[in-house]
Amino acid sequence: MSNLPSSQTAVPQTHPLVKGEVGPGCAKTDPIVIADSVTRQFGGLKAVDVAHLEIPRGKITALIGPNGAGKTTMFNLLTGFDKPNTGTWEFDGKSLAGVPAFKVARAGMVRTFQLTKSLGRLSVLQNMLLGATGQRGEGLFSSLVKPLWRKQEEENTARADDLLARFKLDAKREDYAASLSGGQRKLLEMARALMSNPELIMLDEPMAGVNPALTQSLLGHIKNLKDDGTSVLFVEHDMHMVMHISDWVIVMAEGRVVAEGPPETVMKDPAVIDAYLGAHHDEDLGDLMEDGPNPVLEAERKAREAHPEIEAEHEAAGYAEPVTPASREEEQR
């Protein structure tokens, strides 16, 4: 299914971000990440099988795809949290294949996790301060002498407070992170990652469980990040959000990159519709197109109708609409 050529539709052949022709794995004019033949096998399953992938610098790139497409695995591989079977990749011109996770982060490529990893028995502020880089007080011997790191700690605290205010977490500053709601933990994790001023921030489902009012302001923050020169790569199932803020969309299915393009056109790519619909292959895609502007959302609506129990679960959990069954998926690591 994924071998359907994307050129079947009226996708524009060129784009300012792209060198040459637009298509899965196309070269970018200014890439920040370039990955080649990255594969990761779990038993008989090829979770990731990406021949070539480039992520544009200074832009917001969405990585979408149905559950199990390999998005989280790809994140883990790129950031050193998992080892690929094959593959090389470079970040900002430096090869990062085989580099341990903490060095990847220091290089400026910082990620968040689909299943949030807030540090429960540290306060929200301590969580934030942990994100700051180059701290003198983190050395074993210098840590004993407070005058060596007091000033830097104050500067970091000021920055943390600023970020906390932006993420509406300032009232929670002194609370244990464990006392935060799921959505607040997502926010904290993102704010914490920003403490290091990363070159590229990789967000794995940052909006899952965040309430809609806050989603709006978060979208604003992500756009601001771009204005500050940070590149953003994010996994998201909420197509409104993807359409709204991304400059570029990469679609994965069954481990491969099946389509790429600007958000307005990529959703119309038959390979994308194919990837999302899967079993509903025989649906008349034309009908779907007329039903609404966004066939992916439609597909998800249909999926939800087919699985009302998932819907009920969302409601019970107080999840904000629109949710997708995918956003509740457990990360398998």
């Binding site: 950031t79 949290f81 996770a101 903490f102 910082v110 996790f113 807030s118 540090l119 969580n127 290091s196």
Partner: peptide, 13 residues
């Protein structure tokens, strides 16, 4: 932080 979740700490460099 390591006591709470070492992967999170790793992801922060």
């Amino acid at each position: 932080g390591i006591r709470e979740d070492e992967d999170a700490v790793r992801s922060l460099g």
